Computed example of a mutant assay.
Amino acid sequence: MGENFEPLPVMSISNKKKVLYPLIGALVCSLIGVGIYFYISATLNTPLTIRDIDMDSGAALKLNLLEQVSKKNGITEWKLKASSATLLKEENRAILKDVDVIFYTRENTKIYLTSDEGILNTQTHDMSFLKNVIVRHETYTLRTDQLHYDKKPHIIRSDVHVTLEDRESIIEADSMVTQLNQNKTILKGHVKGKFSEKFNIP
């Protein structure tokens, strides 16, 4: 006496899709969720690095390169470059290293200044230059230990010993002022030196 078996129902293709797609969707969502979790964890645990800017405990930030241009009434007064600039908190000052400045006179004559260090007032744009200060004019070279730039009158001045020289002459003084708009240099205090007929101080 044989037993009767009913055949198992065959799942149609459409039913397979109805079951398979939700499973695949759930698996993809799970993988995406795991990926997002590890990405957020890695981001939160890794310090944020910004190129060319370093945070400093005694300063707002430190720039590895500073370039700045100052204009007045559309006319360029100076262009500044420094290899680094440390912006001090609440002091409105930037401490500069390896300073290179081009000053412009009213006639657009260029006067070049370099120094090992500098200080820029970020509000007034007055500047001080320290250590190995060299100013190169069309007709002479000036050397001093300290030099200051006052933006409002557009002058550079030194209150310490200065030396001006060209190939044939050398002049020393206790202080000097260069009025950039007038392209005029004034020497004061124990002015002495070796002069040649060709030596020209504007």
Rank of each mutant, 00 (worst) to 15 (best):
N4Q: 13
A85F: 07
N200H: 11
K71S: 15
N108W: 07
M127V: 04
A85V: 02
Q179D: 14
K16V: 12
E197G: 10
N183M: 05
F199K: 05
R51Q: 12
A59G: 10
M176G: 07
G35A: 14
H125L: 15
K72V: 08
E168K: 12
V162E: 03
I50T: 11
K110H: 09
T144D: 00
V177W: 07
F103W: 03
L88N: 05
N183I: 09
V101A: 05
I75K: 09
T163Q: 13
H154Y: 02
V191I: 14
V191K: 02
L31N: 01
R157W: 09
G74D: 06
L113S: 04
E90W: 06
E138C: 01
S128N: 15
M55N: 11
Q182R: 14
T122A: 01
L31Y: 04
P153F: 06
Y149H: 07
L61C: 03
H190K: 14
V69K: 15
T105R: 01
T109Y: 00
P47H: 05
E172R: 13
T178Y: 10
L87F: 13
R136L: 02
Q68R: 15
L130Q: 14
D98A: 12
T114C: 07
Y140R: 02
G74L: 10
M176F: 10
L130M: 15
I201R: 08
V99E: 01
H161A: 05
F103A: 04
I134G: 10
Y112T: 08
N181Y: 06
F129L: 00
S128P: 06
L8N: 14
A60D: 15
S196F: 01
H190F: 08
E107K: 11
G2A: 14
R136N: 09
D56H: 13
N4C: 11
Y21V: 13
N108C: 03
E165N: 08
G33F: 07
L31I: 11
S158N: 05
I24A: 10
K152V: 00
A60Q: 15
E197M: 08
M11K: 14
V162P: 03
H190P: 04
D98H: 13
G58M: 07
T185W: 06
L87P: 10
D126S: 06
N15W: 12
N45P: 00
L164V: 04
I36S: 09
I171C: 08
G58S: 12
L80I: 00
V19Q: 03
N183K: 09
N64S: 13
Q146H: 10
H154D: 03
K198A: 11
H125N: 15
S14P: 13
K188M: 10
A85N: 04
E90R: 13
V133E: 00
K110Q: 09
T124C: 04
F5R: 15
K151C: 01
I13F: 14
S169T: 06
I156S: 03
E6Y: 12
